[in-house]
Write a protein that binds this DNA or RNA. Structure first.
Lengths: 155, 155
DNA sequence: ATAGTTTTGTTACACATGTAACCAATTCGG
DNA sequence: CCGAATTGGTTACATGTGTAACAAAACTAT
């Protein structure tokens, strides 16, 4: 096993304290843990589940709307939607007033799957934040919002 | 444009407040912003830069060690290392006491690139956290550590 | 009306990724 | 010792991803 000491005489990045790195690890750990559940039980990928969550949360929507709400690429959304349609979880109907647009909505089956996953996802989140006090949760909320605002602006 | 109101009478997930989702967006926003800089200027991918950061931070190491420190898959590390070796940024020498192991280290060129990127990465991080007070930074640090510990345990 | 532009969504391509299978070196058990 | 299990690392395959090119529909403005 190599030493845990770091180089003192050269510039280096304290990776274990570097915010982008920590955020990335944390986000992956959390997302993957939840994803395992709905991938195993329902065969859904992360983009697929996100599309369903948006439809369940905000009602029928066009692909562009889902892009905005999920921050996912439109290609990713397009493909996720097609897989959901193949699986019978979502259907799509043309918008008569603008035939480029296709309005997606959860099917009865899709709604049923959605309603089964939501509690699982919420329970998972609850477990993860369960070590935080109410005040800490509020503070986390505030800090994440602040960071996101700055990061988006600098993007 | 569809309404911003949500479904009140069915279970739904308030995506915009859902922690895994927010973490994922934030981590991607931040990582991509920094990645653009070292991809554009040095042609490095995120895994490649992470390998270099670990070698610069902790000194020569075997692939397994890098996997542990970065939480990246061993295949990802293997490929990133090979690209770095092709580019002359890293070299590898067999460990005589265990010839399965190959110890990677930054070349002079690799060290030079590393030393150019570190300040850029730190400056980027500084910009992002610059809206936080010292107390908020400390709190963020604490909260992320707490979340990571719980998430890892539940993984 | 109609040419040019914008918007919505899909397809083609190039590339990154993880799982699983694999090879080679080492260690473990008898 | 010697075969079996383990470990370090790479390769093959299937899949996921984003950029760019594209097609179709709808605006815009003469």
């Amino acid at each position: 096993m190599s030493s845990a000491t770091h180089n003192r005489d050269a510039p280096h990045l304290a990776l274990e304290a570097f915010l982008p790195y920590r955020l990335s690890i944390l986000a992956n750990t959390v997302s993957n843990a939840i994803a395992r559940e709905y991938q195993g039980r329902f065969g859904l990928t992360i983009p697929e589940w996100r599309v369903m969550a948006v439809l369940g949360r905000f009602g029928p929507d066009v692909a562009t709307g889902i892009c905005e709400r999920t921050a996912m690429d439109k290609v990713t959304v397009s493909r996720a939607m097609n897989r959901l349609i193949d699986g019978g979880l979502v259907n799509r109907s043309a918008d008569d007033s603008d035939r480029r647009r296709a309005i997606a909505r959860l099917t009865r089956k899709g709604r049923s799957v959605h309603d089964k996953i939501v509690p699982v996802a919420l329970e998972h989140e609850r477990r993860i934040v369960s070590t935080l006090t109410t005040a800490e949760m509020a503070e986390l909320d505030r800090l994440l919002a602040k960071l996101q605002a700055t990061a988006s602006a600098n993007g």
